[in-house]
Simulated scan of single mutants.
Amino acid sequence: MSGNIVARRYAKALFAFGEKQGAAELQAYGEELSRLAEVLGGSPEVMRFFKSPVFNRDEKKGVLGKVLEAAAVRPAMKNFCDLLADKNRLPFLPDIAGAFGKLLDAVNGVVRGRLVTAVELPEARRTDIKNKLEKQAGKQLELDYAVEPGILGGIVLKVGDKVLDASLRAQLDILKETIKRGE
């Protein structure tokens, strides 16, 4: 089974459990999973430990207990992580957190995207662009901002699986192809 499929299945199961508990619990599970993913993402040696077949389940659960203690998670999340340890799925925890976050965003009507510009935008301009895009989409938008001088000018907006490339680099590439074809 692919890691992505495994992560989605476990995320859906935890999400369904959280929905039965209520919206507040669902949000709490999302926050706890994010914290755990950050802790594990910042510690590649722990992830290598969880992936290693050399260590048995009890040793992995011992290390997991310390990680969960540091992340201060609720008993239900501890039980979920113990289940992952029993099924040898701990390495998928960051992917599960990502899949759970996507499910949570869908329920909350949040769309995540990335806005790439050639130069750093002032905060007022960022807010203005975000507000206009939210108005167009009719949903709350969470944007990550990046600067990539290689686009020369304009913007590249990536939302979900859609890309709007309104950069000067893209326009020049189109012009170059048009000239090559002799149109």
Rank of each mutant, 00 (worst) to 15 (best):
I129V: 13
A137S: 03
R89F: 02
E45S: 14
V54P: 06
K102I: 12
G150N: 08
K78Q: 12
K61P: 06
P44Q: 09
F49K: 09
G41P: 04
S34H: 13
V67Y: 02
R74I: 03
V147M: 01
D105W: 11
R74L: 03
V116S: 00
L115I: 11
V147L: 02
G154Y: 08
N131D: 15
T127R: 15
V63T: 02
G98E: 15
A85Q: 05
L143E: 02
M47I: 05
L104I: 08
E59L: 14
K132T: 03
A124T: 03
A85F: 08
K132G: 00
E45A: 14
E134Q: 11
C81D: 00
P122V: 15
E45F: 10
K139Y: 06
K51S: 15
D86P: 05
D82Q: 14
K78W: 05
F80H: 00
A106I: 05
A72S: 10
A124S: 08
V111E: 09
M47A: 09
V156H: 02
D161Y: 09
G101F: 06
A99K: 14
D161V: 10
G154W: 07
G160P: 04
E123K: 15
Q27K: 14
D86C: 09
M47P: 01
F80K: 04
R114A: 08
V54S: 11
G30V: 13
E69L: 07
K66R: 14
G138R: 10
L141H: 01
L133Q: 00
E120D: 13
L133N: 04
N56R: 11
L36G: 11
P53T: 04
G150K: 15
P75K: 10
K130I: 03
E32G: 11
A124W: 03
V111R: 14
G98P: 15
A70H: 07
V159P: 00
A146D: 14
A85T: 05
N56Q: 06
V111L: 13
K102A: 13
V107Y: 09
P91H: 08
L33F: 10
V39H: 04
L141C: 03
R125I: 12
P44S: 12
V111P: 06
P122Q: 12
